[in-house]
Design a protein around this nucleic acid. Sequence first.
DNA 1: ACCAATCATTGTTGTCGTCAATAGTTGCCG
DNA 2: CGGCAACTATTGACGACAACAATGATTGGT
Lengths: 141, 141
Amino acid sequence: MRALHADTGYLLYRLGLHSGRLFNATLEEFGLRLRHYALLRYLATVEGALQRELSDRLGYDPSAIVSLVDDLQELGLVERGPAPGDRRSRIVALTDRGKDVLRDTDKGSRRVTDELLAPLTPGERATLQSLLARVAEADRG
Amino acid sequence: MRALHADTGYLLYRLGLHSGRLFNATLEEFGLRLRHYALLRYLATVEGALQRELSDRLGYDPSAIVSLVDDLQELGLVERGPAPGDRRSRIVALTDRGKDVLRDTDKGSRRVTDELLAPLTPGERATLQSLLARVAEADRG
DNA sequence: ACCAATCATTGTTGTCGTCAATAGTTGCCG
DNA sequence: CGGCAACTATTGACGACAACAATGATTGGT
């Protein structure tokens, strides 16, 4: 019989769960969950995005984006503005406060990653990062 | 600003989600979900386990184990038997049918993994597998 | 000027995770 | 030996979350 973790895909799933739990634990103190963090983080790379774009890039349902942005707006981390040239769309952008919080949560993020990758040497961590990045890049633009 | 996927822990989380979705899609034809598969797979490594043990090793709540085992028993893939020496416990074991189904789902599992790891060479896949296995081993006995 | 497509939004449904409560059983310790 | 704490499986409740359909406003094409 094959071992429990003989399969890389399954192993990824299990580690992803574990990693998600660790992230959520550190984000809790900011009143955020992982999906909020993912959204903030994406916004930091583009300086303003349509909600539709967020849905596509993050892989969340448009309705999920609505409630996530609602939450973040209520916390003052994000703003909805009009989209130039299309009154259907709204542009979501980080506020200054949002950028600050993102910096703080990034610290927590690094702490979690350090804890998770404790058994690996720095060189191995770099290898892992690079392999995972290539896998991730393959199935999302 | 850091890129979206600069952080290995976060990357693991995202890939884990993706991998989980692929798994669930292939398991659907067997009427199973990933949690059922995880349970079957663990049972294959031990030949009989207390439900409490399943809860500990898989990280699912005891109540979740109950309903998973209910489902699997209804499908005839698993049996509950008495635990020798402790009438509180039940021992869960794979049936022959369960072993067959597990072999079939393992094929699907390999297909998913191949698809997921398509961008990597065989050598890189082995490296990734080994690194992930070490990370996984660190935080579970 | 219509009609299909698009964007944000709401509501619904099923699943999941967590937690509390229960019944039966065990082991310990007085 | 008796009683009490701890443990096993189980049920039930509640909130969080994902996936899906439906709506209203707006756009672009023709």
